[in-house]
Computed example of a mutant assay.
Amino acid sequence: MPQIEAGNASETYWGNIQLKPFGQGAGTRLLPGGYTSPERFVKTAYQKTHIPLPKNRIEAVMAVFHLMESVSIPKGVIITERNTYDYTQYAALMNTHTCEYFFRTYDNSQIATASLWDRYEYSVRPICLGKLNRPVVFEKVPNP
């Protein structure tokens, strides 16, 4: 009989067909609203379509962080195959209109903000971040 566990569910067979778990959190798949990626995605999509429309940017930021709280993973709930914790280390969002980046970390739930634009001249001048120390390179990811 399947059990709920912090570790991952192991692969199993259905006849000759190998069934693999969805990923981290698969040991919680029997819980309502478990921690697999599909369960968390569906939960967030449902909640997003049912919250009231925010009246301003502050309400919007708060709403997004509350949505992300409902699917974050606390430390200790999911244990990886390497016997380490899989948990939500940070939550972040970006307002693409104002180029503001909002984030909070596992150890500090206060929302911090970083802006890429001069706060009073959103459409005029970005803040210079200086030269990149290394070039950005896009490479093809090999198939497993």
Results as ranks from 00 to 15, higher is better:
residue 71 V to K: 06
residue 127 I to T: 09
residue 17 I to P: 00
residue 82 R to C: 04
residue 134 R to F: 11
residue 62 M to K: 13
residue 18 Q to M: 10
residue 97 H to G: 00
residue 27 G to S: 04
residue 10 S to P: 05
residue 50 H to F: 03
residue 41 F to K: 11
residue 111 I to V: 14
residue 44 T to W: 06
residue 78 I to R: 04
residue 125 R to M: 13
residue 26 A to G: 13
residue 6 A to H: 08
residue 117 W to H: 07
residue 43 K to N: 07
residue 19 L to T: 06
residue 105 T to L: 10
residue 91 A to H: 01
residue 35 Y to I: 01
residue 137 V to L: 15
residue 100 E to D: 11
residue 113 T to R: 12
residue 4 I to C: 05
residue 7 G to D: 07
residue 77 V to M: 04
residue 135 P to E: 15
residue 6 A to R: 13
residue 12 T to H: 07
residue 138 F to A: 11
residue 30 L to M: 14
residue 141 V to W: 08
residue 29 R to T: 09
residue 86 D to P: 00
residue 136 V to Y: 14
residue 51 I to M: 05
residue 35 Y to F: 13
residue 5 E to Y: 02
residue 98 T to L: 02
residue 109 S to K: 10
residue 66 H to S: 14
residue 88 T to F: 04
residue 122 Y to P: 11
residue 83 N to L: 09
residue 11 E to F: 12
residue 15 G to N: 11
residue 45 A to P: 00
residue 113 T to Y: 00
residue 48 K to Y: 10
residue 33 G to N: 13
residue 139 E to Y: 10
residue 89 Q to R: 13
residue 112 A to H: 11
residue 13 Y to W: 10
residue 1 M to D: 10
residue 78 I to L: 07
residue 71 V to A: 09
residue 109 S to R: 05
residue 70 S to P: 01
residue 42 V to E: 13
residue 39 E to M: 07
residue 35 Y to K: 08
residue 127 I to K: 15
residue 13 Y to C: 03
residue 131 K to V: 05
residue 99 C to S: 07
residue 3 Q to Y: 07
residue 23 G to C: 05
residue 119 R to L: 11
residue 89 Q to D: 03
residue 69 E to C: 08
residue 109 S to I: 03
residue 95 N to G: 02
residue 26 A to Q: 08
residue 12 T to G: 03
residue 121 E to R: 14
residue 13 Y to A: 06
residue 14 W to S: 12
residue 125 R to H: 14
